[in-house]
Design a protein around this nucleic acid. Structure first.
Lengths: 169, 169
DNA sequence: TATTGTTATACTCTATAACTATA
DNA sequence: TATAGTTATAGAGTATAACAATA
């Protein structure tokens, strides 16, 4: 009877395969720019808001404070970002694109544009908006689970409601 | 006018955030089993087909021959998989779960079941089937692009058609 | 010649724990 | 007390290139 769990495992695997493919394509597209796909994520987060604290960057890139710092050190060494003392909070650092970073990210946008075009086309059967909503829902649901394992057998604690913006579909 | 590229970047970011969240949850759920989420992917690929060559595993897990080997070495050290000479192709290795691996993966399924439950619930606004189809489309489209960068300015080569199973929507 | 897999190697990302400084 | 960030450290995944053995 095709247990629903099987379908859900397919969903998880699809998510994985799709993301990894996107990640590799982005990496390949960015070779000429001398940055990784993950570094591009950080840079593009900085491209909008003028200056962000590392904490804000951690939230926006869903990465780890320690991981982010390592990435920023690399990006700083490449001369793409600057970290200055935060004006009002002396614990914090104010991170922003350098002049060169602003110039380079334009090239990165151009270099990765074909990848996004493919992505949009591939997602076409579903409205991008509803797809984004669902993926955001997934991220949110994954984020709200207790981080502790709790491998207490095959219990399936019916997940409580989420943002569930039921606009798409 | 909200360039469509912006939406597509949102889609890419959503995909990233959703996957990373899933990955972390799975990792957390598996701590008691002493395997990583990526290792679980390999093991679950082995759980169905009795024995696979490393080449087949590479395809099913969308990983790299060299990467996969490193993972298999780790899994072999844990006593979860066995690699034997392939009966008919003497170049190949036949990989399968060990007895202990078969026992352990049952625990892993149980431990990760809540994660899948959350995932299914979060994806509920869209039919899982159509979502899987779209994500497969994405992976396929990403896989069919030329791997060479070609950062020739902001050209947007209109992606050619794909599997585009237009059943969802 | 093409394919399967190994080896050596390197780098990036990830993450934990202990720590400093500031709020 | 809580938060922002650093440091040290470790490991896992990723990937390339050169290579061996076999198909």
């Amino acid at each position: 009877m095709q247990t629903p769990a099987a379908h859900t495992h397919d969903l998880a695997m699809s998510l994985r395969v799709a993301y990894l493919a996107l990640h590799r394509r982005t990496d390949a597209a960015l070779t000429g720019c001398d940055v990784t796909a993950d570094q591009f994520v950080v840079l593009s987060a900085l491209a909008r808001g003028d200056a962000l604290t590392q904490r804000e960057l951690v939230d926006r890139t869903s990465s780890d404070p320690s991981t982010l710092r390592a990435m920023l050190v690399l990006l700083e060494a490449k001369g793409l970002v600057e970290r200055q003392p935060h004006p009002s909070d002396r614990r914090a650092r104010s991170v922003r694109l350098s002049r060169r970073g602003r110039r380079e990210i334009e090239r990165m946008w151009a270099a990765t544009e074909p990848v996004r075009a493919h992505l949009a086309h591939a997602a076409a059967p579903l409205e991008v908006t509803s797809l984004v909503a669902v993926l955001a829902n997934v991220a949110s649901a994954m984020g709200r689970q207790p981080i502790a394992p709790d491998a207490s057998s095959g219990r399936s604690p019916p997940p409580d409601e989420g943002p569930t913006s039921s606009k798409g579909t």
